[in-house]
Structures are given as structure tokens and as C-alpha cells.
Nucleic acid binder design. Structure first.
Length: 320
DNA sequence: GGTATTTGACCACGT
DNA sequence: CACGTGGTCAAATAC
């Protein structure tokens, strides 16, 4: 991990360990640099996002762009065939395992109750994206990458049936369910943004919140409520099957690094409260214990009670 | 024309 | 009571 972009790790560490005041400036600088870097690197026609951003609030362009970047990365990863998945698994696995663990270790709380394996997939791809975009890996991503933005990816999927995984890639988030994004918000506490998704099934109240850091890396995924229906099994051919398979592989290797939480499937408000109450007490003990893999009861656990956890402090935008 | 995403605005809640 | 934040809605936009 030392070898991997001391740059990134440093930055990340600073993020959480430095005081907000002192880091705010450097943070902005970093953000700017990052933006420029991404834009320059991608240098691709970022149709929708930019357009949307332009149409919407220019002030948010910054964060928005970054965010979009994150999500698309995820999608991109998902789109990759098994081969790519394995590749990632290998590259990232060896490269990240250690560091990623460290990186994410800074993101306390992470409990993924016995969710369906499908949800694991979500966390997987997200882990990948996080890792990929966060570390020097960013550099590893082929410049050609479909790394553009969620919209681009989407369109790509739509237009190219060769993939045959449209729905899966598009909104399912890899967990087998279809999610639709209904909101995004900038958060200060864990500097970054949160994306709100809800199950596209009208009868399903399942929701999930993806927390991303400044680098648009998905640092945490919170599931709220559970699906009251089976995941739309759209696996029609071998390709998809293999994709899923590969995803799982990655899950096993990455899941432990990506915070995934499952909130009680009660109404949002209750969930929030419970979360608030449970976090501090439950996180440290149990999570530390199994901070490295699947928990029989919680499914995935990728967290360790971090004393430095800024979110354990009063307020810090996590209770709600 | 339908669906999904983006994003500003709104409301509820906690401090 | 004011302020900040989280979560959601809905219009605009893109595909």
C-alpha cells in the first residue's frame, strides 16, 4: 500500500484525520485538481451530466461531475465481461486489498445484514469503482474506458445490445434489483455526496443510499428496507451469468473493503433513529470482530470501529 | 413517448 | 428560534 499512490492515500488520510478547517483549503485545491484531472483525462464528450449540470445549478457542477464519474465507473465495471472482472479482481485485489482495507477502515460502520447475494453484487461493483477511482488505479483505467458518466453508460447499454445486460447494468446496481436514482445531495460531514436510490418496483419500498467521497468513490452503501419481491432475474444467457459470476468473485475479494450497511426495514425515520442508536454501540464490537469478511448474520462486514470516525461525533450528518 | 438522471427546492428533524 | 443537515419531490433534461 505504501507504493500505491502515496498521493492518494495521503490525501485520503488527510481527509479524515485532519481538521476540517485545515483541510478545507487543501481539500478544495485537491478537488479542483481532481476535477481538472478527470476532465482532462476523460476529455470525452460528457453529454448528459455536463448538459444537465449546465442546465441545473452551475454551482453544483463540480460535485455533480464528480459524482457522475463515480457512478459511471461502477457501471463501467459492471459492464465489463468476466475477463475484465477477473482482471480487476486481480489487479485491484492484489493492489488494493491491503490499502483498500486501510482506506475503508477509515469509514467506520459497515454492516450488511443477510441481504441477498444480489446486494452483495452491488457493493462489489461499488467497491471496485471506489478502489478504481480512488487510487492510482485511476491511472490504470484505460483512457478509453467507458468512464464517462452514468448517462453515457446508460445510452451505451441501450444502444448496444451486444451486451445483453441492459437492465442489469443500467439500474440494477448489480444486486439484481433495479434501482432508480431519485436524489443526490452534497454532504459535508463525510465530505462528498449521497445518492438516493429506490427500487423501481412500484410495490417495493426498498431504498439505498450511496455515500461517495470527494473523489466520487462510493464509500458506503446503506440499504433501507428490504425488497418485497424477488429480484428480476434477467439472466437470459451465459454472458450474463458469467458476469454475475465474476461479480461475485470480486465481491468476495472486495466486499470487505466497502462499507455496506443495512438499515432496518422500517420507515425511513425509524431506520434513521435506529441507525443512530445502533451505530456507535454495535459497530465497534461486532464489526471489529469480523471486520474482514462475511458475517453469518450480517452478510458483509467491512468496517472497524474507528475512533477517529468523524461520524460518530454528534451531528455530522449521519443520524438522519 | 416513455423512462431514467440530474438538480434546485422544500420539509422535517436535531442541536 | 435559527441554523444545518438529511431525505424527498418534481421540473428539466437526456437517451
Amino acid at each position: 500500500m505504501e507504493d500505491r499512490g502515496s498521493d492518494t492515500s495521503d490525501a485520503l488520510q488527510t481527509d479524515d484525520e485532519t481538521t476540517e478547517e485545515s483541510e478545507s483549503e487543501s481539500e478544495e485545491e485537491r478537488l479542483r485538481d481532481l476535477q481538472e484531472f478527470r476532465v482532462a483525462r476523460l476529455g470525452e464528450p460528457r453529454g448528459p451530466p455536463l448538459a444537465a449540470a449546465a442546465g441545473g445549478g452551475g454551482g453544483r457542477l463540480e460535485a455533480t461531475s464528480l459524482c457522475a464519474g463515480g457512478s459511471h465507473v461502477i457501471s463501467a465495471s459492471r459492464e465489463e465481461p468476466e475477463e475484465r472482472a477477473n482482471q480487476l479482481n486481480g489487479e485491484l485485489g492484489s493492489d488494493i486489498t491491503g490499502e483498500a482495507a486501510e482506506t475503508y477502515s477509515r469509514n467506520p460502520r459497515t454492516v450488511c445484514p443477510s441481504i441477498s447475494s444480489g446486494l452483495l453484487l452491488v457493493s462489489v461493483s461499488q467497491s471496485i469503482s471506489s478502489v478504481a477511482s480512488s487510487t492510482p488505479l485511476d491511472r490504470k483505467l484505460p483512457p478509453t474506458t467507458k468512464v464517462t458518466d452514468s448517462c453515457t453508460v446508460r445510452s451505451k447499454v441501450r444502444n448496444s445490445s451486444d451486451c445483453g445486460t441492459t437492465s442489469a447494468v443500467k439500474a440494477s446496481g448489480g444486486d439484481g434489483y433495479n434501482w432508480r436514482k431519485y436524489g443526490q445531495k452534497q454532504v459535508k460531514s463525510p465530505k462528498g455526496s449521497r445518492s438516493y436510490f429506490r427500487c423501481t418496483n412500484s410495490d417495493c419500498s426498498a431504498k439505498k443510499i450511496e455515500c461517495s467521497d470527494l473523489l466520487s468513490q462510493t464509500t458506503e452503501t446503506v440499504y433501507r428496507s428490504s425488497h418485497n419481491h424477488d429480484p428480476p432475474q434477467k439472466v437470459r444467457d451465459g454472458r450474463q451469468r458469467s458476469r454475475v459470476k465474476s461479480s461475485r468473485i470480486i465481491v468476495e475479494s472486495e466486499v470487505a473493503k466497502h462499507p455496506v450497511r443495512m438499515l432496518p426495514e422500517s420507515d425511513p425515520s425509524v431506520a434513521s433513529r435506529e441507525q443512530k442508536n445502533e451505530l456507535p454501540s454495535s459497530v465497534p464490537g461486532r464489526e471489529i470482530q469480523e471486520a474482514n469478511g462475511f458475517d453469518a448474520n450480517y452478510g458483509i462486514v467491512a468496517k472497524q470501529g474507528n475512533d477517529n470516525d468523524p461520524e460518530l461525533k454528534p451531528r455530522q450528518g449521519e443520524e438522519k
